[in-house]
Write a protein that binds this DNA or RNA. Structure first.
Lengths: 228, 228
DNA sequence: CTCGGACCTTGACCTATATCAAGAAAACGC
DNA sequence: GCGTTTTCTTGATATAGGTCAAGGTCCGAG
C-alpha cells in the first residue's frame, strides 16, 4: 500500500502506530503537480490540507499591485494548507509547486471522524498548529519591528542551524524568492547582501554564503545592532 | 460553582455540554490582575493558557530599541496564550492587562488528559488555533504588502463589522495603542487619520470615527487605491 | 559554441514613514 | 476647578527601502 508508506514519511504522522496509519491511508489521496503548477489559490474552498511527499511548494500572498510575499516554503515531510481546515472555509493564500512534486491530500471530514475516535491524532494536529502559530508570531514580530538586514541575518542564522557544524549555508531558494520571503524586493536584498559582505560579516559565493561573524549577525538579527 | 458559570461565558467553551464543563471546572483556575499588571512575559515558561472573563488584555512584542508592537487585544470571552500550549515551552510574547481584569487559567496537562477522553474538546481547540492562524496570516500579509493607510482602513472596516448597522465606530483602544497594533507609531497614525478626514473618507470625533465612504475605504484597504 | 532568457546587480531617484522636538488637548487626581 | 500628567497633534528633518532603468552574469537549448 504505497500511501501508507508515504504517510510514515510525514513529520506530522511520525510516531503514530500502525493501526492509525491504516486508518489514515484509507482516505488520504495523492496528487502530483508539475513545476510551477498551482496547488490551490487564495480564496479557494478548503476541504482538507496537504503534505509534501516529494518536491517543494511555496505559500504566498499577492498584493493587488502584483507584489508577492512568500509566507513559507515547504519540503518533503511538511504539511501545508492546514491553517483553515477547522474553521475557515477557504485557503488564505496561494500555493504553488516550485518543482515537480508529489503531495498527499488529507480531506477534512474523514480526518475529523478519525480524530473523534483517536484523540492522539488531534493532539498531533494541535502541536502542528502551535508550531505554525509560533512561526507566524515570529514573522509578525520581524515585519513590524525589524528592518530588512535584521530579518536577513535571522534567516541566515536559522539556515545554519540545519548544519551547525558548517559556517557555510546554501540558500534554499533563488535570491529573488528569498527577497519576497523576507518581505522585500530583489534589489534591496542584493544591496544588503553586499553591505553584509563589505562589513566582513559574510562571504558571498553565488548561492553559498559563509557566515564570517555569527556573533555580530546575531546582534543584527535581534536588533541590538544596526548595519552601517 | 462560580468557575463553571464563568466557563460558559468563554467563546471557546460555548456549546459544550454540562458534563464537559464540570470536567473542566475541576482544574481551571481564576486569577485577577490589576490595570497595567503583566499576565506573563515573552519567554516565560508556559504550562497552560488563559481566557478573559472580564477586562481587557493586550499581547505584544518588544524590540530591543524599546518599540512595541501589539499583536492582539482580547476582551471578555476570548482566549489568549494558547499559541504555545501544545508544542512551545515558552510564551512567545508579552501579555499585560489594559484594565483590571479577571482571567481563567487552563493548565495544559489536565487539559490534555481531558482531551484524550473527549475529542470534542480537541476539535474545539483546533478551531480556535485555526482562527488564530488566519488572523496572523492576514497580519503578515498586511505588514509585508500594505502601507499604513491600507492597514488602518482595514481595521476600521473590521471594527464596523461588529455593528454593521452603524456608520460610526468607537476605537477599542487608545490611539497610541492602535498605532502599535498597526505596526506604526502614534505620530504617523495621527497624520493618516487627518488625511483620511481631509479626503472626506471619515469624520473624526475623539475616539468615535464615522465612516463616510466605506467603498473607498475598502478599496484603500485592499490596496487597489492609494491615499492622496 | 552561442543565442536567449532568467536572474542578479548596480545606480539614480523618490516616497513612506520613523525620529526629534514642541505645543495643544484631554484625562485625572485632589 | 485647577494643576499635573498623559495622550494627541503638528512640523521639520532624516532615512530605509521601493521604483525605474540599464547592464551584467549565468545557464540551458539547440
Amino acid at each position: 500500500m504505497p500511501i501508507r508508506d508515504d504517510l510514515e514519511t510525514l513529520d506530522f504522522f511520525k510516531g503514530l502506530d500502525g493501526s492509525l496509519l491504516d486508518l489514515l491511508a484509507a482516505f488520504v489521496q495523492t496528487r502530483t503537480v508539475a513545476k510551477g503548477e498551482a496547488v490551490f489559490a487564495d480564496g479557494d474552498a478548503c476541504d482538507g490540507f496537504y503534505a509534501v511527499l516529494q518536491g517543494q511548494v511555496r505559500i504566498y500572498k499577492m498584493s493587488p499591485a502584483g507584489r508577492e510575499h512568500i509566507l513559507h516554503v515547504f519540503g518533503p515531510g511538511e504539511a501545508f494548507g492546514e491553517v483553515a481546515v477547522f474553521k475557515g472555509l477557504r485557503f488564505p493564500a496561494h500555493a504553488q509547486a516550485l518543482r515537480a512534486s508529489r503531495l498527499a491530500f488529507i480531506p477534512r471530514e474523514p480526518l475529523k471522524r478519525a480524530m473523534a475516535r483517536e484523540p492522539e491524532l488531534a493532539l498531533g494536529m494541535l502541536g502542528l498548529l502551535s508550531l505554525r502559530l509560533l512561526h507566524f508570531v515570529r514573522k509578525v514580530e520581524e515585519l513590524g519591528l525589524k528592518e530588512v538586514p535584521a530579518r536577513l541575518a535571522a534567516h541566515l542564522l536559522l539556515l545554519r542551524e540545519e548544519h551547525p557544524e558548517s559556517q557555510t549555508v546554501t540558500l534554499d531558494m533563488a535570491k529573488g524568492q528569498l527577497a519576497t520571503y523576507l518581505g522585500t524586493i530583489p534589489e534591496t536584498l542584493s544591496r544588503i547582501l553586499k553591505r553584509l559582505a563589505d562589513q566582513q560579516l559574510i562571504a558571498l559565493d553565488g548561492h553559498r554564503i559563509t557566515l564570517l561573524d555569527p556573533a555580530t549577525l546575531a546582534a543584527l538579527a535581534s536588533g541590538e545592532e544596526r548595519l552601517e
